[in-house]
Write a protein that binds this DNA or RNA. Structure first.
Lengths: 198, 198, 198, 198
DNA sequence: AATGAATGAGTATTCATTCAT
DNA sequence: TATGAATGAATACTCATTCAT
């Protein structure tokens, strides 16, 4: 991100190693020395790029979003009808949730303690923007309800899907069938709405 | 809960102190010695009630759910129509999210590292059950769509509201007006549904 | 000291070990782990008695003064004439300077950085008081000049002797003969005065 | 010094910066990187002029003595009577003690750990020589006692004055009046001698 | 000579946990 | 049950020093 400027190469290497270690060990057991071992650099070098252990968190978030956006480049069809697109979005969100679920929680706790929450918003922004464009187009085509502005819908939609994915990850885990059912239920709830209009 | 058996009194005192400290200090900086200071007991006593520091987590979750259920006793009208009930639920969820948001993240990370995730499900169960009953009733009255079983709807609904509350907490924080708007948008999205049926 | 209350036993053990290590290794190379090894306690125990490594310094100073006062009990004759007493004082000062010279410098640097210099004064006080009494008595007997109050003379006298002892330590070191000569020169200078009165 | 050869210009710049930093931070917290920042050079350049961090110490000592000798050029009257000269010497010694007190202690500890104490003597030598000449002249004029050789008197005298200045610095600090009194007491003690001759 | 990025050894301090009382 | 002094393993971070440019 950084307005399109790619992260410095060594900083990137360190961050990728950090992602690995945090995922494997959790936030409590992750040590700087394991991060640097994974990155193939010396202990001190870490501190040339990050002032403290926890300050890798924003860099991790950047990379996660970057990867997510790359998923959209690959898996998402900008020309498809909205229902198809919704299914694609759900697949992508469930995908990264399965892979990175713990990491998101860690990120959140790690950034939260530093109260750099504005950063969080800035990092998510391009993601929201992408979905927002999709919604806008669908509204134009009369496929999505128009009571709310596209950005608001986008943000809440991502939240909804992520929450369902979290639940699925938490409760169903390795059960592929159950995950599939959850996705379908989600689509039902999102499309038909909750409350019956008389 | 414990099937209705109330937590031992000293254990409860310790847990309440732990909630305080975790909220004030975050997961990284919370120490057993601060927890016991807050509870007015000796260092060693902690270990008579919990085998390790992280094992307070489930007890914290229990108390949080307990408090949530008490909120429902106070703020929730079992006789009201569903839209009114939905608004009440939203108020309650936004309420505890504002108060305990950080704590939920901590809980999650703290329990996750112990992989006691089944416990998590069990603890949430009575909460889901409560909402499930509400949905069932509303379905009976034709106020809620009937494509999905009440439990599934309940679980996802709670997730949706919590996700919106999280976003509100993250991005809007102290802005009461914005929080109010978020609640309204949420209701719009939940009631009208996302996709337009032609 | 502490108004006569002896230092807590374990604190004393730690301090004595610290004296040893600081003397052997100097301020830079002294490690807490070597101090505790010498004291036969665990690493953490050190911090039950001292908040930080450098905070042993005042305790070291206390013990050094304590030892000095014990020297006076042994080597000093309160009934002797002043010239004899002066020689005894010089012997004692040269004695502890030879033994603890480095340590005093370290102490000074160590306490200085904490700017606990008032403590320094308080710790030295009983020592000054002792010498002050000796001077007072000698003045009464007409053996010492009476232009200045005894306390002032005492303080400066100790300073003078310590400075000569320092120089002797620095320049003469192991040369016993030279040290002896230095002591005699010192007595000459102290007794006859510097400037000739016409 | 160096037999009259002035220190290389960059070496001098580094040393002056080191003096600054050591004074501000103390020996423990002084880092090479702060020294080089102050000197406006790169980290590695330091090691072109000094083999290690502590090896700046002798260079610092040289500069301090150099500054002291310059003070004598300015403030000292070679034609005056000895009492006047003594007062001038006292003023100069109290002057540099006030300014550089901490630094002398640091120097001492820093050089001591390297056991370069002979260097110390060599560096002080021209200073002692200067005072020695003054004493010799005063002895010639019958203003100073002649029992001891001028060099011995010079060395001890400097030590005495420095010790009084140290005490004054330690205990009186910012109290200008008290410092003045200390100087006068010192003169009294130096001129009239300690022991009364019957 | 000068640079400054990279190194990695070195250590103070913290804190969960134990156990004798 | 309750205590709290003692333990000692564990680790983030610093910084003197090196060396390729």
């Amino acid at each position: 991100m950084n307005g399109g400027i790619r992260m410095d190469d060594k900083k990137r290497t360190i961050t990728l190693s950090a992602i690995n270690v945090f995922q494997k060990k959790g936030i409590e057991k992750t040590t700087v020395s394991e991060i640097v071992r994974g990155a193939g650099i010396a202990q001190g070098t870490f501190y040339l790029y990050f002032p403290s252990q926890l300050s890798v968190m924003p860099a991790i978030a950047e990379i996660l979003i970057e990867k997510t956006l790359q998923q959209f480049d690959k898996q998402f069809d900008r020309k498809a009808d909205f229902l198809t697109q919704l299914k694609q979005i759900i697949d992508i969100v469930f995908g990264y949730t399965e892979k990175y679920h713990d990491l998101y929680a860690i990120l959140f706790v790690g950034m939260g303690s530093n109260k750099q929450l504005n950063q969080w918003e800035a990092i998510y922004e391009p993601y929201y923007e992408l979905i927002s464009d999709v919604i806008k187009e669908a509204q134009k085509n009369g496929e999505v309800q128009q009571t709310l502005p596209p950005k608001k819908i986008a943000v809440m939609l991502i939240g909804f899907i992520e929450s369902a994915a979290d639940q699925s990850y938490l409760f169903d885990r390795a059960d592929t069938k159950a995950v599939q059912v959850k996705k379908e239920d989600l689509i039902v709830l999102l499309t038909s709405g909750l409350v019956l209009t008389p």
